[in-house]
Amino acid sequence: MTTGGGAPAFATYRDVQDAWRPLRDAERTWAIQLLEAAARWIRRQLPNIAADDPAAKLVSISVVKSALTAGDASGYVSHSKSIGPWSKSGTLANPDGALVFTDWHKEQLGLGPTRVPHYRFGVWDE
Rank of each mutant, 00 (worst) to 15 (best):
Arg14Leu: 14
Arg14Lys: 11
Asp15Ile: 02
Asp15Pro: 00
Gln17Lys: 00
Gln17Thr: 03
Gln17Val: 00
Ala19Val: 00
Trp20Ala: 07
Trp20Val: 01
Trp20Lys: 00
Trp20Gln: 02
Arg21Asp: 00
Arg21Glu: 02
Pro22Phe: 05
Pro22Asn: 07
Pro22Gly: 05
Leu23Cys: 01
Arg24His: 13
Arg24Lys: 12
Ala26His: 13
Arg28Gln: 05
Arg28Ala: 06
Thr29Leu: 01
Trp30Ile: 08
Trp30Glu: 14
Ala31Lys: 06
Ala31Glu: 01
Ala31Leu: 07
Ile32Lys: 12
Gln33Thr: 13
Gln33Ile: 06
Gln33Met: 05
Gln33Asp: 12
Leu34Asp: 07
Leu34Asn: 09
Leu35Met: 05
Glu36Met: 11
Glu36Arg: 15
Ala37Arg: 12
Ala38Arg: 02
Ala39Phe: 05
Arg40Asn: 13
Trp41Lys: 14
Trp41Ser: 10
Arg43Leu: 10
Arg43Cys: 10
Arg43Asp: 09
Arg43Ser: 07
Arg43Val: 12
Arg44Met: 12
Gln45Ala: 15
Leu46Trp: 09
Pro47Asp: 15
Pro47Met: 15
Asn48Ile: 07
Ala50Trp: 04
Ala51Tyr: 01
Ala51Asp: 14
Ala51Asn: 13
Ala51Thr: 13
Asp52His: 03
Asp52Glu: 11
Asp52Ala: 09
Asp53Pro: 08
Ala56Leu: 09
Ala56His: 10
Leu58Asp: 12
Val59Ala: 06
Ser60Asn: 01
Ser60Asp: 04
Ile61Arg: 06
Ile61Ser: 05
Ser62Gly: 13
Ser62Phe: 14
Ser62Cys: 11
Val63Tyr: 08
Lys65Pro: 04
Ser66Gly: 14
Ala67Asn: 07
Ala67His: 04
Ala67Gln: 04
Ala67Lys: 09
